[in-house]
Design a binder for these strands. Structure first.
Length: 430
RNA sequence: GCGAUCGUGGCGAAGUGGUUAACGCUCUGGAUUGUGGCUUCAGCAUUCGUGGGUUCGAUUCCCAUCGGUCGCCCCA
């Protein structure tokens, strides 16, 4: 046998796991539509510059994680590493902003690709469900966007997803704060890690995220404890906006934890940023981000020159499945077979096939064995599928027009006229 | 990009430098030829991720490579 392997970091979904994936996808679609969202489907790949310009030239995603390739006409294309930039591109290219709606609520679902070493909850091909809203900037909307995620978590039976939220301020606030951080960390930088030294010049806010220097103590002072807080450098406008979002979250009874060190790695965010954190699980998953997002008012403007506010988030499907597995949230999603039809000779199987399609057309799940005429083999299929009813057809049944129907729950077997089988089974399934 | 660890049949999992690679589950066939899920008997890896090397001989030692798992970085 040829030794085929799937590419590193990718996955095949089959059996129960594929059932879980489609259950999540279906449920997420249903719920988000209640909020008025429309699905947007964009290409799996985009022109490379869509991501470079919008995710950020300095971001890790762009500098080392993209699947970029040339097509036969020498165009540079990239397998999408995230959803937001592609959705924004489509929003602008199709001039959706001109459709007269005060806001446009969009969601997407599909695979994303990042060239990374895999570990728990991280793959090279992974799936995201995400939402983006364009056109309005108000705390009411921001809080509602966050609440859509919690409606989902709730529906899935997850009660331990912690919301971490912060405001990184508008562009001016960020600049002022960045200067302050450079002053502050500049005093200690000689003792800090290589990454932080690099970040000091390029993106000092990311130092706040550093795991290496998290507990660094210099001159008996834990430097992260005395770091200037973004909160003290927000413009009045940004601060009031953030306070109002928090206020509304309280009203919606969504628990949150304000984390002044939450800054996020994508360049396009401003003001409100947030992450959904997994808690109360195994060590591997605990503290991991199940999803994240924020506002990115500047991105649309930089793409098309029009001021259009934007906010969105994305949730990772593989991580969602992992948490839901641990919390045993998949108890009732098994697809049951309602009926298995047994035929004891070719003509009986043919009669069974015809009956099966009548039942299927009436919303009943039916399966059968196609090549064996022995009872034994066909009952084995029943053992596997565990149907509610087993219909047995043989020569006698064909002659009389009465088929044997066995109810596997009551263990009772009855003869039923062909014309009455549909009703008999429907009644039995209630 | 860096680091750790692992890779034996459909699955789980022992094992050793040397003629037949344990065991459990599953599966296949029979006891039981129109009623299964129990029991019982029998069968199922020319082969130990792949390629090369050492050796009289390697699944077991060495190297490389491809994968899995898990950390760091970053993120979903």
């Amino acid at each position: 046998m040829a030794n085929y392997q799937k590419p590193k970091g990718t996955q095949d979904f089959f059996g129960p796991r594929s059932l879980k994936l489609s259950y999540i996808e279906k449920t997420a679609r249903e719920i988000i539509k209640k909020f008025g969202y429309e699905e947007m489907v964009t290409p799996i790949f985009e022109n490379t510059e869509v991501f470079i310009k919008n995710v950020g030239e300095g971001s890790d995603i762009v500098t080392k994680e993209m699947y970029t390739f040339k097509d036969k006409s020498d165009r540079s294309l990239t397998l999408r590493p995230e959803g937001t930039a592609a959705i924004a591109r489509s929003f602008i290219e199709n001039k959706i902003y001109a459709n007269g709606m005060p806001h446009n609520k969009l969601f997407y679902y599909g695979p994303m690709f990042r060239y990374e070493r895999q570990q728990t909850g991280r793959y090279r091909e992974f799936r995201q469900f995400g939402v983006e809203v364009y056109g309005q900037s108000t705390p009411l909307l921001d809080a509602e966007v966050i609440s859509t995620a919690y409606m989902l978590f709730n529906k899935f039976g997850l009660n331990d997803i912690k919301l971490k939220i912060n405001s990184i301020g508008d562009i001016e606030s960020r600049k002022n704060y960045g200067n302050k951080l450079q002053d502050y960390f500049g005093r200690y930088i000689d003792n800090m890690c290589d990454d932080c030294r690099r970040r000091l010049g390029t993106n000092p806010m990311r130092i706040l995220d550093c795991k290496t220097d998290k507990d660094l103590i210099i001159n008996n002072v834990k430097i992260m404890d005395n770091v200037p807080l973004i909160n003290d450098y927000l413009s009045n406008e940004s601060r009031e906006y953030f306070d109002e979002v928090i206020n509304i979250l309280d009203k919606l009874k969504i628990n949150y934890e304000i984390d002044f060190n939450l800054v996020r790695g994508l360049d396009y965010y401003n003001d409100v940023v947030f992450e959904f954190i997994i808690t109360n699980t195994s060590d591997e998953l605990n503290g991991m981000a199940l999803g994240g997002g924020g506002k990115y008012n500047g991105m649309i403007n930089s793409m098309c020159g029009i001021d259009i506010p934007a906010i969105g988030y994305a949730i990772g499907m593989e991580r969602l499945i992992a948490v839901m597995d641990e919390k045993q949230c998949f108890n009732n999603i098994i697809d049951n077979t309602d009926v298995v039809i047994i035929g004891l000779d070719f003509d009986s199987k043919l009669a069974g096939l015809m009956l099966a399609n009548i039942l299927r057309a009436n919303d009943i799940t039916v399966d059968m064995e196609y090549s064996s005429y022995t009872m034994k083999n066909q009952f084995k299929l029943c053992d596997k599928l565990n149907p509610h009813f087993i219909i047995i057809i043989g020569e006698n049944e064909r002659k009389t027009g009465n088929y044997q129907i066995k109810n596997t729950l009551t263990k009772k077997q009855e003869e039923v006229k062909i014309s009455e089988i549909l009703d008999y089974i429907k009644k039995g399934m209630l």
